[in-house]
Design a protein around this nucleic acid. Structure first.
Lengths: 154, 154
DNA sequence: TTAATCAGTTGTATAATAAGACTTATCTTA
DNA sequence: TAAGATAAGTCTTATTATACAACTGATTAA
């Protein structure tokens, strides 16, 4: 996109700090591909159509951020694999929320390509949505934002 | 960032199509500010420290996408206000998921600045997380991705 | 052993952002 | 009501990230 000398990392907002790590143009799609099983440079490259130098940069940033890690290949190849860390895998809810919104508001003529499901049962997931402790979904208008209270240290 | 002639809009993936609309560097922070009550150009500008021309471009893109709309000011001012549409407000779960991840994985030394809560009760929300129909949270490893089945037309 | 593939690196061109000066319309206040 | 301040942009220039293509050295396949 352009000159990104402006960084979000000094902002106290957790959304800004997250976007500092995964908000670059290709980052979330790289993470998506990793969640769908991509492990090798060529997988990401051919799936995304991203320029090689840009892919190199994004992958290194994600490693630097602790979202991806390079590990020796399972199949004995000399080429290392890129794998999500726990930190990376926990972006799952973000991905599902993005996907769910796109299914509703950025519809492709041929419909959605993929869907998330429960591997235990094969059933669909319920919507990723703000809920009360009892599991009840809130209306969006009922969600408020307030200054964070100090959390107990222990 | 740079040359973004590569567009995601032709991709069938809902995540890519969503990022095409809100994945630019500042877009999600503008939407965050709108959710926190920002309505005027100056609010976004001073909150974000974004260049004016860039802010103008991002705001117009978000209007073009139907995420923001310009409406006449409630207080009678001649300056219009930028307000989220329903389409924009429904990015709430994405925001909460981003915030929740940042609270855990991109911690600021002084802790989180804001938190979401239930305005009805004042209580915290439960985590935005993949769940079964019965409300039970899945382990991330239990979430699978599969080609989308054709949905019934009616 | 030769050719093809993989994972990059290195240029060059282009497009998006940053920064700041400038403009016009609106608002405040004395 | 007139003058100054503020709001919401626009325009220009400089910087930087991305795209694209060619090239390189290591690994793999035939």
């Amino acid at each position: 996109m352009g000159m990104k000398s402006k960084s979000f990392s000094d902002m106290q907002c957790s959304i800004a700090r997250t976007l500092e790590l995964v908000g670059s143009w290709w980052s979330l799609l790289i993470i998506r591909d990793a969640m769908m099983g991509a492990r090798r440079f060529k997988h990401f490259e051919s799936s995304l159509g991203i320029a090689k130098n840009t892919l190199t940069n994004r992958l290194n940033e994600l490693i630097e951020s602790g979202i991806l890690q390079k590990v020796s290949a399972e199949d004995g190849s000399a080429y290392d694999e890129y794998r999500l860390t726990l930190k990376g895998r926990e972006l799952g809810p973000v991905m599902i929320a993005l996907s769910q919104w796109g299914d509703k508001w950025a519809v492709h003529p041929e419909g959605p390509r993929f869907e998330f499901f429960d591997q235990k049962t094969g059933h669909d997931l319920s919507a990723v949505w703000p809920r009360r402790e009892n599991g009840e979904a809130l209306q969006l208008g009922e969600v408020g934002v307030r200054p964070a209270r100090a959390k107990p240290i222990v």
